[in-house]
Design a protein around this nucleic acid. Structure first.
Lengths: 223, 223
DNA sequence: AACACACTTAATGTCGACATTTATCACTGG
DNA sequence: CCAGTGATAAATGTCGACATTAAGTGTGTT
């Protein structure tokens, strides 16, 4: 929790703020303002920003500073397509390799999500949802694949954070989770993979349909 | 090529040196030494190192500086498994989505590799090989997936760089490429994916069998 | 009135020095 | 002779100031 170095602490704080949606895509991260806010010099701020850039949560343009990463609709679609494939892979390997403890953990997290829905506690559901996906990454027994998937999910989570899901969508999501979990528990790799891909695709459709209407300027003006 | 900022230039130089194998995994990157070598202060060096760390080519341990990333055998296997899946995905999407120009480009690059083999020019083959894989990533029409795959391949290329392949292995590799390219050219997504996964798996086996004998200390001593 | 040029300003890039921490090594005690 | 502790030294972490660049603004001319 308490990282040894200032820059690490600052990076963690900023990271959470971005993930929570307090800092919006496109927001500029001014070094001096941040230095004033954290009451440190610009050096640790620079280090923190560089570190955050490594997660692609923020972007740097030389001589133009850092800004919270923005993505255009195409990139968003691509990221969700990639996330679907990656989570599908995690689910497949999870179904084939997870040990008994991990399977039980996954089963339990899914149950927690169901409880949260019954109590109409959307915040608890979001947490259980996140933990479930995370548990599946962990149980795929491939740390590299887990890290890659987690990175993509984090890049996207700043969009998730800004939208409350309708009760309908949450119920649908629960059913999709159930299919994934069922496949995992019965060692059905292909089934788990397909179910997970379908689940992510539907989530993507839901998010993108919320974002589409807005006229935010395209993010990466690269060719 | 000529990046505007010092740190960017330095990062590029160091990156190439790592990718070429001139800097070996585990080599420490001392800030002061690098500052002396590039005749700049430590600031741009620090920026460059932070930027390199974002590609995972080098690793940072707080208060202990940076070092060229080292991976233990397990991580290496995981990375190759992930690379196989990712390249399989790229090949699948490539087969389904590549346009005529891209298909022709891929066909040509494969032919170049074959020529290189006939002339026993291993350097040219390595280059054509790299270009072919790269062309397949590009033609998958998903920049996010392409970038992720490229990152993993770069992380592994520092190991590739240190081994010359036997003529036997190169010939085998050529045949595997041919199968991939054939599938792509006939829009066979599943075939391309499977062929590519097989190709990467065999390459991995080849590399790992070269590395296994050595007694290098495990890289990431994390729990 | 519109465009172009120059100036001002505010940001990042770079520098050198100081602070802090960690690792090494010598010394002392058992 | 080994182990533990302390000091020393070398590395990274942090700081404040200066240099440089890019953007914005204002003025002058066509």
């Amino acid at each position: 929790m308490a990282s040894s170095t200032l820059s690490r602490k600052i990076a963690n704080v900023l990271s959470e703020e971005i993930l929570k949606g307090e800092l919006m895509p496109g927001d500029r991260l001014d070094e001096q303002s941040l230095a004033d806010r954290f009451e440190v010099s610009r050096s640790p701020i620079r280090d923190a920003l560089r570190e955050l850039a490594s997660t692609r949560l923020i972007e740097q343009q030389p001589r133009r500073g850092f800004a919270v990463a923005t993505v255009d609709t195409t990139t968003l679609r691509n990221l969700y397509e990639a996330l679907g494939e990656l989570e599908g892979l995690c689910a497949r390997y999870c179904a084939l390799r997870a040990d008994a403890v991990q399977r039980e953990h996954i089963r339990m997290l899914h149950a927690q999500g169901q409880d949260a829905i019954r109590q109409h506690d959307m915040s608890a559901y979001a947490e259980a949802n996140h933990a479930l996906h995370r548990a599946i990454y962990d149980a795929c027994h491939n740390d590299a694949l887990r890290d890659i998937t987690l990175d993509v999910r984090n890049r996207l989570s700043m969009f998730h954070a800004r939208f409350l899901f309708s009760e309908d969508r949450v119920a649908q999501s629960r059913d999709e989770h159930e299919e994934v979990v069922d496949c995992i528990l019965r060692n059905d790799g292909n089934g788990a993979s397909e179910a997970m891909k379908k689940h992510v695709a539907k989530t993507a459709l839901n998010i993108i349909s919320h974002i589409m209407p807005d006229n935010r300027k395209p993010a990466t003006p690269e060719a």
